[in-house]
């Protein structure tokens, strides 16, 4: 264990004398700044409707009522032409013109042109529903039953943290650890270590330790700044340690098959891209095919999310920790075996 410690200390000193550790910390701070100062707590889902009402003042009473009740922001303009002009600048807005034709109200909705049929139908239905609800003796018979045990929702800002922790902390290590190994190979320092009593596993584990440490520091800084006290830090510690180890040993195993970074790059890149796919399920839970659920980043994302819920499922988090611990041991043993054959070739 003493040799492992000396090796880790050496790697730590080297990392502080190189750029990577500072880059990781810088990236964490950039992410914090973006989340705190650019990304709103919750994304605003209200639309802006630019409207022109060609009605007599007496007929405007009902319109005022409609404006007050609407969840959208309605801005009144003086003519249809004004509506069209402003829509050319405000691409995310829609327009509405209401006029009276033969004792009937005529509603004209002006869209941008890029809206698809589904959206048009949805808007039409929404519009019609508004009138139906006004019908005398109208009664809603819709009942809502929540199937999920915990339907707690994170703010849009907090909801981004699990993705950052999974991708940056857990899987960037995959790429970084491989580059450390290939750098040692290229400089020949690995050859000097191989002719000492240092074991291959000690050499590899010291690199994993370094990646775990840097991942923990950058992730904790991010979590403290963005989530404050709204996170289970003990669970976060264990999940970060186990998932960082998993990402690192996976990187080691992939690297053990290649001579240099150039030849490993394609595989590394493909694996990282593949691991990003479960983010679709994370943001759109309805889209969760089995193929995505089988990827290790899937349980990681959802386990990280549980930590930010006020009443998160902590036993799920620890089960994920246990699973990644077992997988990490198996993959590390495989990487160690392979590296014994290929480390100095």
């Amino acid at each position: 264990m003493k040799k492992l410690w000396f090796c880790f200390k050496k790697d730590l000193v080297l990392s502080f004398k190189s750029w990577y550790i500072y880059t990781e910390l810088l990236m964490a701070f950039v992410f914090i700044i973006i989340l705190l100062f650019i990304v709103p707590e919750n994304f605003d889902s209200t639309r802006t409707i630019y409207a022109y009402f060609d009605l007599k003042p007496a007929e405007m009473n009902r319109i005022d009522e409609f404006i007050n009740e609407s969840e959208d922001e309605i801005i009144l303009l003086d003519s249809r032409a004004d509506v069209v002009d402003i829509l050319k600048k405000e691409k995310s807005s829609i327009g509405m013109v209401v006029s009276k034709q033969y004792r009937q109200l005529d509603y004209e909705i002006i869209l941008q042109g890029f809206e698809n049929e589904k959206l048009k139908t949805l808007m039409k239905t929404d519009f019609l529903m508004h009138f139906i609800e006004e019908t005398p003796r109208y009664k809603s018979i819709v009942t809502t039953t929540t199937l999920m045990g915990n339907n707690e929702k994170l703010s849009d800002r907090l909801n981004m943290l699990p993705v950052f922790l999974t991708m940056n902390a857990s899987f960037m290590g995959l790429f970084i650890i491989a580059s450390y190994i290939f750098l040692d190979k290229e400089r020949g320092t690995i050859r000097a270590l191989t002719v000492t009593p240092l074991s291959v596993w000690q050499y590899l584990l010291s690199k994993v330790g370094l990646l775990v440490m840097s991942g923990l520091v950058s992730s904790f800084i991010t979590a403290i700044f963005v989530a404050g006290t709204k996170v289970n830090y003990i669970g976060l510690f264990f999940l970060l340690v186990t998932t960082n180890i998993f990402g690192s040993v996976l990187g080691l195993y992939i690297a053990s098959f290649f001579k240099d970074m150039a030849s490993a790059m394609g595989w590394m890149y493909s694996v990282i891209i593949l691991l990003m796919f479960p983010s679709f399920s994370y943001y759109m839970p309805a889209f969760s095919p089995l193929a995505l659920k089988l990827l290790p980043s899937y349980p990681m994302l959802f386990a990280y999310r549980e930590l930010f819920f006020e009443h998160g499922n902590i036993s799920y988090v620890y089960n994920v920790c246990l699973m990644f611990s077992i997988l990490s041991i198996i993959i590390f043993l495989m990487a160690n075996k392979k590296f014994k054959e290929t480390l100095t070739i």
């Binding site: 003493k2 050496k10 270590l193 002719v195 000492t196 009593p197």
Partner: peptide, 30 residues
């Protein structure tokens, strides 16, 4: 490996470490 010493044709020391740090780290591996 406690009994052998290997000097390489191509120098392979850690560039970011001092000469002393290089040797001091290496000696701890034996």
């Amino acid at each position: 490996f406690n009994l052998i010493g290997v000097s390489f044709e191509q120098s392979n020391v850690y560039d970011k470490l001092t000469a002393y740090e290089n040797l001091n780290f290496y000696r701890k591996l034996f």
